[in-house]
Design a protein around this nucleic acid. Sequence first.
DNA 1: TTTCTTCTGGAACGATCGGTTCAGTTCGTT
DNA 2: AACGAACTGAACCGATCGTTCCAGAAGAAA
Lengths: 211, 211
Amino acid sequence: MSTTFGVMTTTETVTKTRGRPRAFDEDQVLDTLVDFFWIHGYEAASMNDIVDAAGLNKSSLYNAFGSKDELFFTVLDRYIDGKELMLREALSEGGVDALVGFFASQREMLLSTIGKNGCMAVNASTELGLRDERAVTMADRYRAMLRESIRRPLVWSADRDEVDPLLVDAYTEMLVSAMFGMSVSARAGASEAELETLLDSMVALITSWKR
Amino acid sequence: MSTTFGVMTTTETVTKTRGRPRAFDEDQVLDTLVDFFWIHGYEAASMNDIVDAAGLNKSSLYNAFGSKDELFFTVLDRYIDGKELMLREALSEGGVDALVGFFASQREMLLSTIGKNGCMAVNASTELGLRDERAVTMADRYRAMLRESIRRPLVWSADRDEVDPLLVDAYTEMLVSAMFGMSVSARAGASEAELETLLDSMVALITSWKR
DNA sequence: TTTCTTCTGGAACGATCGGTTCAGTTCGTT
DNA sequence: AACGAACTGAACCGATCGTTCCAGAAGAAA
């Protein structure tokens, strides 16, 4: 964020540095590494492989992002930011129908090449557990965000007497858990048929909540 | 399995080996390592740490169980066997009520020191992903086992018109996913309050299925 | 053009990784 | 008592780990 000419440019940092400018786009590299860590997790991803995946050399990577775990959490944050944006877009309006639509749209994602690796945040949580404080913080944020996103359309429908208001919280918890579960099954190598059945069940259940 | 005196002893192998007998009980060591791998996962567990946890030296460990990954999958199998036994005991009789009772009893487990590490099979699945064929096989077996265990009481109740027979499959899928989700949340460091809310929601929802 | 800062490529670091080797001990069998 | 198979403890292996360092290239500012 620069304040040149009194104008705040939040999206692009207009740095007037002297030396040689960076030859790569940081965000672009991070996006590439999202996929990489998503697939390989933390421990199993060696710095050499990461460097190769990023397409630049080790010094540059350390220079720009710090140590392996700093890089990992930066990438993880970026992943969650993306997910939040996606959820906001899908669930910020409407009620149960929007929720059904969202789960239906998850089909494409779940069956894609990268989607079969489940959810990067879930993978990171289960791999790191309580070992790293940052992992716990990240996981808290992720659960809260997911919970809020899913709860909103349920409340919307409850307000219109479309679903039982007394069960909104239970429904929310169930769906959050179910999303984690879907991610686990995908990552574990469940067949496409099994994943589709799972999604169908989810949609059928949510539909049954409407009255 | 020995056939000494024509009597099959399946539980204890009566080996007439010559040399020095093993100074430790294999099963006991495996039980100890279940907890260890459950907590640390695969990659983050170094052989030195494993050796320390097992309480014997490296040669003995390699002698008895082979390489690190062989050992890991042996331990994982043992974990799943234990879980299967537990599920069979809890859910082989009765209907939805048994299911409710089971989830209620999960409270104790989920809040225990080891239980806060989620489910070892889920952790192993998400960490290893598709990297190792044995992990996929194990995960398939685990999901199938869990699904069968949960489905049975639902079918039992459906037969007695206690729950909607048309939704039995959807209920099953949902509960399997929800169990995975619970495990993920626990492992991710969710507070006891959050885990209790989750369990309460689960119980409330299953109860609402009864008609 | 010169200056100055930053980035780049690759060699190199010590630590730790999973795994092996072997001399010596132990203990049931003969 | 002697034999010999199996186990034990510790030193040791090359490979790989994450990380650092440095000489030189690059490029914007002066």
